[in-house]
Design a protein around this nucleic acid. Structure first.
Ligand SMILES: [Mn+2]
Ligand SMILES: [Mn+2]
Ligand SMILES: [Mn+2]
Ligand SMILES: [Mn+2]
Lengths: 219, 219
DNA sequence: ATATTTTGTTAGTCTAATCTAACATTATAT
DNA sequence: ATATAATGTTAGATTAGACTAACAAAATAT
């Protein structure tokens, strides 16, 4: 079994991995707010456990085993978030910190029950995919709203940033997943967009917002 | 804030306290399966935090503050058990170990939500009272089934032992809280009882069982 | 009353996970 | 090409929570 702490490192390694699966000690250190020497020594420990490929001064990489175990922690996190939103009436802006703790509960049946009660969901409340029970995650390829063109109508399917502040902002504009959004105009100067959706006909969204909204072209 | 470990010590002190509120180091040590020197040093730490009255070689006693904080941990434990049974379809024999972990989640709103969804329950799935949000627990005075007399009809309201094995035994006899039980006879030799309840007319229960069932005389 | 057993404390060690200070390597800028 | 900055490692210290061994006090038995 991996400790609470080890599980958090695995998750971070998985989430920070670039296209080639690499993570630098420094990034990981900053992300976890844990000093580099501590990270180095944990990486050696995870390497002992065959969860991480570690070589001095080289970027870090999860092993297949490491990826699987990380995937399973992320699965527990996302199932929990879904459960908190769908079964306990939490807002999507309030679930991350609780899930950050509950993901470490040691009880397979507890998460199986969540999964069952939720009807085996494939995505979490923020549109992120929930890894299957082997830790495998299937990433859908979405487009950023900021990359769409005037006149297009798209469906909002996920958010990139899941900070409470950003999600509260989306709440205040009644922006939620599943919504159809039409792009009415784009300001050349700052790339801000004027869009319409549901009852809102002239919402202006800054680029900071539009590049954090993941959409699919409406077919 | 108290640590995960401290919370478990507080809960144990509360549960092991005798009529005068005292607990011996040795008892606590055996209960927690932690060696006495470790317990002694933790007691000194909790005394520093004004949670325990500690004097060398004297029995341990929670302070008022300690009782309150212990009560709040027990509240979280019992709310969790109730949630697992009523909202997640777990059996009463399967919830203790999960609650033992979830009771340490740091998120007041998480437990408030449970409480709300459950409709502010006063007892847990085993009939134990749930302390209020100030940590205050109100003990109802129940009678042991083993202390009742032939001919009496009683209502099953709580179980003393909550081990999975005992609860599974009760399941196998369809014995559940709320049931009306009539005492048909008591065997003088071994104090075993023949009782009837629901569709069962001639169930024999050993004294080991009857002294673990808490009942109220039917009025 | 004294010996024995049980209970409790002290002192010192260990492991997991953190830190700082100092040093080493790699990357970047001039 | 070399100096400087950024990144990474090593060594050693710290804290929480556990342990064992040895000793001390209290309770119990003879
Ligand atoms: Mn999250
Ligand atoms: Mn976490
Ligand atoms: Mn319990
Ligand atoms: Mn616990």
């Amino acid at each position: 079994m991996n400790s609470y702490t080890e599980e958090n490192y695995l998750k971070a390694l998985f989430n920070l991995a670039n296209e080639t699966g690499e993570v630098n000690v420094n990034e990981l250190s900053k992300w976890l707010e844990i000093k580099m020497p501590t990270v180095t020594s944990m990486m050696k420990k995870l390497a002992e456990k065959k969860l991480v490929h570690y070589e001095s001064y080289k970027p870090l990489r999860l092993t297949e085993k490491g990826k699987k175990e990380a995937g399973l922690v992320i699965r527990k996190h996302r199932l929990t978030e879904m459960f908190l939103v769908n079964k306990m009436n939490f807002g999507w802006e309030d679930v991350h910190d609780i899930a950050e703790q509950i993901e470490h509960i040691q009880s397979p049946v507890f998460f199986e029950k969540m999964d069952e009660l939720l009807g085996y969901p494939k995505i979490d409340p923020h549109g992120s995919p929930i890894p299957d029970s082997n830790g495998k995650m299937i990433w859908k390829v979405y487009e950023k709203l900021s990359d769409c063109k005037v006149g297009e109508t798209v469906k909002l399917l996920a958010v990139i940033n899941t900070s409470s502040n950003f999600l509260k902002f989306l709440n205040s504009r009644e922006l939620q997943l599943g919504l159809k959004i039409k792009i009415k105009s784009i300001e050349a100067f700052d790339k801000s967009m004027v869009v319409s959706y549901s009852k809102r006909q002239n919402e202006s969204l800054s680029q900071l917002v539009t590049e954090r909204l993941l959409v699919e072209k409406d077919k």
